[in-house]
Simulated assay, not measured.
Amino acid sequence: MSFIKPDDTWTLMAFLTGWAAVSIYLEQNYKWAARVSGAIIALLGALIFANLKIIPTESPVYDGVWTYVVPVAVPLLLFKADIRRIWRESGRTFWAFNISALGTVLGAFIATLLLSSVIPEVYKVAAMMTGSYMGGGVNFVAMSEAFKASQNVINAAIVADNLNMALYFFVLMTIPTVGFFKRNFSHPYEDTKKDNDEGKTAAAAYWGRKEISLLDIALAMGSALVITTISTKFAGFINESPALSFIKAILGQKYLVITTMTLILASVFPGFFGRIKGAEELGTFLIYLFFVVIGVPASIEMIIKNSPVLLFYCAIMVIVNMAWTLLIGKMLKFHLEELLIASNANIGGPTTAAAMAIAKGWTELVLPALLVGVYGYVVGNYFGIFTGNTIKSLLGL
């Protein structure tokens, strides 16, 4: 029995929000935490508290986060996903991102081919990691629910994912300084870069203070809840209807419906949704609550058992992504910085890609990094569903 009881809603909510806040604070104020990432701090902290029996491993509070909090995060993170703006302003980085996205899918198939015999629920892992390595944490969440992955596989995959990303981001930050790449790729942004403020972590630089009003918060939360409600009801209606199975597989997935509906609204009404400030911050904080919750029921024994193999799986995907991006990008004469930002946007999402551009002083690539990263949120769910179902079919499951 845990110190905090499963039905102690107030205390558990205080823990979830409090630990998410601590994780964000550490990431933005300490370089060691920035390297680890706030997401993995949130997860590991909850894991430790749960295994020490300070908090319960099961509670209706956690179910509430899965059911209500996470779906609302999706539209909040997509309010700026105006397809026309992404096309118009992301420039060459948009095409570099699409090249890199193909590398993610290719990496999932290669990793599955090599490790399918030793990874349980491998097609579910492929779907989750394709979503994550084309969009970000929100796509990982969507795919984990869409494919009903077991809790231990989800937990182990998140740990492997974050450890792998931490190593990869270090590699990405190092590549521009390596002679081989400087000799073989054009690098105009590196040649003319401006240094960022000293002493700031990349997370702190990106998540700086912004002007925000009460109306912004009201519009952000109100719009997100309306979109989520309509999408969820529509997906439920499709699932209960006599529609064909392939239609249910697409329109019956609430995360795909939420993504599509938000994308359409953001593109048709870019002035309205684009002007709402604070939506990305609210959405990211809600995703941090998910990372705390996902660490709670984790079995340390299962993570130790499963994470090394999953870490290898994720590493294969990332290595294939990087090799493919650099190889094809070199053939098509992309700049090194564009390719690295595109790969970062795939593996980590818009925030890490923008943070890298800020940290490296590539100021002209900050906006493209954000735009293609948001585009990754949009397409990540579609490609995650495609990859997971294709691998499931090929394995005869």
Rank of each mutant, 00 (worst) to 15 (best):
I217D: 03
I217R: 03
A218I: 09
A218T: 12
A218D: 07
A218Y: 05
A218H: 06
L219K: 14
L219R: 11
L219D: 12
A220Q: 01
A220F: 00
A220S: 13
A220H: 07
M221H: 00
M221L: 15
M221W: 05
M221V: 12
G222L: 10
G222T: 04
A224N: 03
A224Y: 02
A224Q: 02
A224W: 01
L225S: 00
V226F: 03
V226S: 04
V226K: 01
V226D: 03
V226H: 05
I227L: 09
I227Y: 04
T228N: 03
T228C: 09
T228Q: 06
T228R: 02
T229L: 13
I230R: 01
I230W: 07
I230A: 13
I230N: 05
S231Q: 06
S231A: 15
S231C: 10
T232I: 12
T232C: 07
T232D: 14
T232L: 13
T232A: 12
T232N: 13
K233Y: 15
K233H: 14
K233T: 10
K233E: 15
K233P: 03
K233I: 14
F234A: 10
A235N: 11
A235H: 12
A235K: 11
A235I: 08
A235R: 12
A235V: 10
G236M: 12
G236T: 09
G236F: 14
F237A: 15
F237N: 05
F237Q: 14
F237S: 12
F237I: 13
I238T: 07
I238A: 08
N239D: 15
N239C: 05
N239L: 15
N239Q: 15
N239R: 12
N239Y: 04
N239S: 13
E240W: 01
E240Y: 00
S241Y: 06
S241M: 06
S241V: 03
S241I: 08
S241K: 05
P242F: 10
A243S: 12
A243Y: 10
A243K: 10
A243M: 13
A243H: 05
A243W: 11
L244H: 10
L244I: 02
S245G: 04
S245P: 07
F246M: 03
F246R: 00
F246V: 01
F246I: 08
F246H: 09
F246P: 00
I247W: 09
I247C: 06
I247S: 09
I247Q: 05
I247L: 15
K248N: 03
K248W: 08
A249F: 02
A249T: 02
A249G: 04
A249D: 13
I250R: 06
I250K: 03
I250C: 02
L251K: 06
L251Y: 13
L251E: 09
L251T: 02
G252A: 09
G252H: 06
G252N: 08
G252Q: 09
Q253D: 15
Q253R: 11
Q253S: 11
K254H: 14
K254E: 15
K254I: 11
K254G: 06
K254A: 06
K254R: 15
K254Q: 15
